[in-house]
Design a protein around this nucleic acid. Structure first.
Length: 574
DNA sequence: GCCGTTTTCGGCCCGACTGTTTTCAGTCG
């Protein structure tokens, strides 16, 4: 079992324990899951080398949970979890993923209506039988159906953050197979769409059979749909399909282009080929029988009279016209970020110390980060003004130790109240280097009220950056109903920076909003929203891609600047 | 179930909101 598998089991146990109403145990299991996820090495190796004793040394893991983890490593599950599943045979993970449904409601729905799955729940809600239960009413039924509808919309598509590592890993493994000369992941992953339906891998190989055999025998493969000399299709254990295509070297560029898509972009390219009396397909660009181009993507675009179009722009939303006119923007490149303006530490709900976050930032090649722990109106946080000032002092001390080698900025993720006021006094905000403001509650206000609330917060003279501006969660929760154009206009007027929150669950702003922001000339930052050291790579893995999909150049993203120039772009010039 | 300059028991995060109720349970962050 991977660390993620073990953490998932622990979280499932926490949900079942929550269901019983037992106190504190659920939090203990959650904490342990958190610790497992934060671990650098594999739990199974830790167990192999040090046994239960080594596991129990992890923070939040004691003897009891350590033994259960040991059992999971050995058997793939643990008896307590199996008992819980037997006792209440419900799909608790899927059911609690529905907005507004928690363990207690799952229990009531199971006991009174026999609801075990999301499908059962939907049927119960449609038939109107839920409203008869104590504490349930018509509004709850409506909300359940709305939430199921939203989840279904994204069904079959997984967030990019859940698949990118695996895609890169398989790509690297394919590249290492004997006789493989080229290997790439294509499709929507290469375009860095925020959700992904399947994997498309492309290789050039001297011996197609060797790479095909390798592909179908990867440990992730659960089922082989079909296996041929040029196309092989499998289903992975995760439920996603993966295709492998073996193409001749002279077709590589045309095939990569064809399988990267998007479909609309490809149709537009083929139309241009037809205009010129040619034919474009996955084997190349042809005039009659004669191949004009096909080895590389660059030569295909060039032959069609177009600038090379980066994969992130291939959605047929104007890129063809711009490429034809030679006016594509020079997109922001990986490696161009110097700072990260949203990071949480153990001072609030993060896992690591400020020093550990700094070390992670240095490892990512950054020159500065802002520490932006949550402020006190989020009750989970238990921070207050005194604690914030204490942290500012700690940061000042650390900066003296770092002696110019790296800069830690004192900041906060300040909560926006329902009326648009902030939950930290202006006097204190004035002392911070970076003030991020963010919505964490009242997601369902009417559009006008929500928009005005956010704009009012942006009007605060200390509010530097609007964090995760729309509040959406990829494939989990819809964005707030907010007039994004009005927010962008307010950002321009007030000098507030808008954030691309690169946390894979958020990706907020999303690509099309980034494009609007760029068009309006409003500066952006790309942040990790890191809650542990390992999250510091989110901007590089996801944030840059969102910015590129939003047509952003390095000039549009101000944390590409050295720290002093960056600070000069904030309100009041800091 | 975990933890300990409070150490083998007793505390553990908690306020706001929602939908449902007339006093509160459940969810969320």
């Amino acid at each position: 079992m991977t660390n993620a598998d073990i953490a998932a089991c622990l979280r499932e146990m926490a949900l079942f324990l929550d269901m019983t109403g037992v106190e504190f145990k659920p939090r203990a299991y959650e904490k342990a899951a958190h610790a497992i996820e934060a671990l650098d090495g594999a739990v199974s190796e830790l167990y192999a080398s040090g046994g239960v004793k080594a596991l129990a040394k992890l923070p939040g893991v004691g003897k009891g949970i350590a033994e259960r983890i040991g059992e999971m490593v050995q058997t793939g599950t643990c008896r307590d979890l199996e008992d819980m599943r037997r006792e209440t045979p419900v799909n608790i993970r899927d059911l609690t993923a529905i907005d507004g449904i928690g363990p207690k409601m799952v229990k009531a729905l199971y006991q009174d209506l026999g609801v075990r799955t999301v499908a059962d729940l939907e049927q119960a809600a449609r038939s109107g039988s839920i409203r008869g239960l104590p504490h349930f009413g018509e509004k709850t039924e409506t909300r359940i159906l709305k939430s199921i509808g939203f989840l279904r919309q994204s069904q079959g598509r997984l967030p990019l953050g859940m698949v990118l590592d695996l895609a890169r890993d398989i790509e690297a493994r394919l590249a290492g197979v004997r006789g493989v000369r080229q290997a790439a992941v294509a499709g929507s992953i290469r375009r860095r769409r925020e959700t992904v339906r399947d994997f498309d891998f492309l290789v050039v190989a001297d011996d197609p059979e060797t790479v095909t055999d390798f592909f179908v025998s990867m440990p992730e493969v659960a089922h082989v749909h079909g296996k041929g000399s040029t196309k092989t299709m499998v289903r992975l254990r995760s439920g996603m399909d993966a295709d492998l295509r073996v193409v001749p070297a002279e077709c590589w560029g045309a095939a990569l282009n064809y399988f990267t898509g998007s479909k609309d972009h490809n149709v537009a390219l083929r139309r241009i080929a037809i205009e010129k009396g040619w034919k474009l397909n996955e084997y190349g660009l042809f005039e009659g029988e004669r191949a004009i181009a096909g080895c590389t993507e660059e030569e295909v675009y060039d032959a069609l009279g177009l600038q090379y179009v980066p994969p992130e722009l291939r959605e047929n939303t104007g890129e063809i016209e711009q490429a034809r006119a030679g006016r594509l923007p020079r997109l922001i490149e990986p490696g161009s970020l110097r700072g990260d303006l949203q990071t949480q530490t153990a001072w609030s709900d993060g896992a690591n110390s400020i020093e550990e976050m700094v070390a992670a930032a240095l490892a990512c090649g950054l020159e500065y980060i802002a520490i932006t722990d949550h402020t006190h109106s989020l009750a989970m946080m238990r921070t207050d003004d005194a604690k914030l000032m204490e942290q500012m002092e700690a940061i000042a001390r650390l900066n003296r130790e770092l002696d110019g080698g790296f800069r830690v900025l004192a900041g906060a993720e300040v909560n926006i109240n329902k009326d648009g006021s902030l939950d930290v006094s202006d006097e204190l905000l004035a002392r911070l280097d970076v003030v991020g403001i963010a919505v964490h509650s009242h997601f369902n206000l009417p559009r006008g009220e929500q928009t005005q609330r956010i704009i009012r917060a942006m009007e605060n003279p200390h509010a530097d950056i609007l964090f995760h501006p729309t509040g959406r969660k990829v494939a989990q929760r819809e964005a707030c109903d907010v007039d994004i154009d009005a927010v962008i206009a307010a950002a321009k007027r007030t000098g507030t920076v808008l954030e691309i929150d690169a946390y894979p669950d958020r990706m907020d702003l999303k690509d099309e909003h980034v494009r609007k922001t760029v068009a309006a000339g409003v500066p952006l930052v790309i942040d990790s929203d890191a809650h542990r050291a390992a999250h510091m790579r989110f901007p590089e893995d996801f944030g840059i891609s969102i910015a590129r999909r939003g047509w952003a150049t390095a000039n549009d993203v101000i944390n590409t600047l050295p720290v002093d120039e960056f600070l000069a772009h904030l309100k009041g010039g800091n």
